[in-house]
Design a protein around this nucleic acid. Sequence first.
DNA 1: CACCAATGTGTGAACGATAACCTACTGCTC
DNA 2: GAGCAGTAGGTTATCGTTCACACATTGGTG
Lengths: 336, 336
Amino acid sequence: MSDVGRLAGVSAQTVSRFLTGKGYVHDETRVRIQAAIEELGYRPNRIARSLHIARTDTIGLLSAGVMNYGAAQTLAGMSARAQATDSTLITAHVSDSADHDPEVARALERMLSMQVDGIVVTARYGDFGRILGETVREEVPVVIIAGRPLQLQDSAGADSYEAGMLAMQHLLQLGHRRIAYLSGPADSDESRERQRAYEDALAAVSLPVAPIIVGGEWNSAAGYEAGLAHDLRDVSAVFCGNDELALGFLAAARRRGISVPHDISVVGVDDMPEARFFAPPLTTVRFDFAALGERAFDMIRRRVETGLRQEHLVLPAELIVRESTAPPARAHRRAR
Amino acid sequence: MSDVGRLAGVSAQTVSRFLTGKGYVHDETRVRIQAAIEELGYRPNRIARSLHIARTDTIGLLSAGVMNYGAAQTLAGMSARAQATDSTLITAHVSDSADHDPEVARALERMLSMQVDGIVVTARYGDFGRILGETVREEVPVVIIAGRPLQLQDSAGADSYEAGMLAMQHLLQLGHRRIAYLSGPADSDESRERQRAYEDALAAVSLPVAPIIVGGEWNSAAGYEAGLAHDLRDVSAVFCGNDELALGFLAAARRRGISVPHDISVVGVDDMPEARFFAPPLTTVRFDFAALGERAFDMIRRRVETGLRQEHLVLPAELIVRESTAPPARAHRRAR
DNA sequence: CACCAATGTGTGAACGATAACCTACTGCTC
DNA sequence: GAGCAGTAGGTTATCGTTCACACATTGGTG
């Protein structure tokens, strides 16, 4: 910066004023400084700046688990807002592994020592709270992307419960009476919320819950295995925790000669871009994950600037009816 | 740091020695310093450190276009290596938009002003080189993830040409003679390399190239549109630029009553986890994108440390034969 | 014509850390 | 017992920037 000043015939301080826009700089001086900057190819050093002002305009994003459609879109949305606000996004993705917790803790420590202004976390399981408490210790604000509102922290998330309700109401309206739930990971809030909606929706019309089919993972392989392993004779519809599980389930049904939607209706959640092209095209519940990322970013920034705690931000769900659902065949209606 | 020193009865410098491991610190002093660190909850400030040592252990990842399976896995792989080497990953994802180029330039500028040690770029189109030249100007090393080796920069990438060859040889061995290529974006190196392999493979056995089917995007919707729009009567196999295009194409074929693989064989590229569960399960060419991200990260780090320019790193492709390919039906063999 | 506000610029200290340099003590060797 | 290597720790300057403050000039006002 002092090189620029020297070339422009002023002090470094005046260059700083020019760049930050604070204080008076003569118009002619501005021109000379601008010329000097370009001639020298000078680029301000943000970390030196941050050292002084104790703010980095940097947000950390910690994601865990599988980098699937939703996570990737959320990341893209956050990045878009970071670009737009001239902020920097630091990401750490820790996949499921043996010693998951210490890795998460280390990633958080690293972000903090990089002086991030705030952190957004996509929480896969509830115990995240403990690690956050131990490492972040209120040093910077945290926003958690979670399946349900959290009391202790700001949170944002897709409305998994509503998604479950929309899916179930659709199936119930079609006339289904024996509906199964194909779950995601047992420790996932999203999966649990969808299951809770599943149970509530059935209870509301006094129908029994079918045994939960445990997928265990958010992927197609889990849906396929579950679809093969399970006795589906007295079930006329399956509500799948997400689209990938649904895809696997569709493949299993095809292999077993079960026709969708004639024999069994299938509903997913997410509306990944591929869902429209499944066989048959999948009825599902859409979330706008990119918007979730954008909102989460704005939320953490606002929190950084105002310090005000905010509510749980809920991303609306939208039912997308395609061809994987239909009224139950007669055999099933009788089976009830 | 001086607070820690004061509490431990030493100077800040000794605390620094303790933390960096350089120089002698008495064992008893170590214990006192460690205790002071824990009592105060002290955490070293990496950016202050960086200011002095002129190194941030930070790598920037710039990705462009759609955040699909490959891009997400590459990111996850890079993040994994960043964790393992105690480095920080700064990401910027710029989606296709009206003024794409200035956005890319701004993202790069931001990374440079954050003093990244190096940058990894997933280049969607060739003109990236110009922007890189204008903004990065050799200030830090750059590794480009590209569909083909680049002369001017270090590069890494999936071997798209080999992928194309594997797919085509598979189809040719099955006896197909009229094979079409369903392309991705026209400005994508990956798509062009796959097309080049397609043309070379046909030329090698003196077969004519079928008119190229232009998908235009790397997504299922493009594959679907193309699959509906195109006259496929004299084609017995389609080589799709990636799995998503293939999924869309499969859906279009189903809608048109074209049976896969009986009437038409379909091959994709990527082997996304869902491909195994398409209807029918997709024959495709697998890439290990997570490994690509890992290798690209190691490459940029090595380049930062040694300054040595490296070769183009090529990620091998592996043919995965499933049920979307079969020998051509008799009608087609005669049509030749 | 002295005074004041507005404008324009420079000086020194500080942000949190590290490196170079310096001091001091111990124990061993010749 | 002088010299030296090894150990332990303090002092000072510095990285690139910003802030608080001081200073200088201008033009208008009472």
